[in-house]
């Protein structure tokens, strides 16, 4: 097994454990923002998409890359914004704001 792959697998498994530790502490009332917020984080694929779109190796790779960038950006921007919109609604006390 190549050493780089082994390191990647180490990183993946350890990150899974961190994920389980962190996520189990999220209370039920925040489960929807958790999904949309974590979903925005999975938009990190944008990094790969940018590399592909920017290398300009063939027209096809540019097309695929741009489509990937668009999808990943929807994921990232839509995810973080909608999560923020939800989270700002969670208040401890009634404040008589817009209902």
């Amino acid at each position: 097994m190549p050493e780089a792959l082994l390191v990647s697998i180490y990183v993946f498994v350890l990150a899974l454990f961190v994920g389980v530790e962190v996520i189990t502490k999220v209370p039920q009332i925040l489960h929807t923002p958790l999904m949309s917020g974590s979903n925005a984080i999975s938009g990190i694929t944008i990094v790969g998409a940018l590399l592909i779109a920017g290398r300009v190796e063939s027209p096809l790779s540019v097309v695929l890359g741009v489509f990937a960038v668009v999808q990943a950006m929807i994921n990232v921007v839509g995810g973080f914004l909608v999560t923020d919109r939800m989270l700002q609604m969670f208040k401890k006390k009634q404040d008589g704001g817009p209902a």
Partner: peptide, 24 residues
Amino acid sequence: TGFVLHNNALIISGALVGASGIIL
């Protein structure tokens, strides 16, 4: 995708979200 590109940021983030979805 992180494994494809040898990119640890993707691997870590993907694992976090994967764990979150599995727990839910």
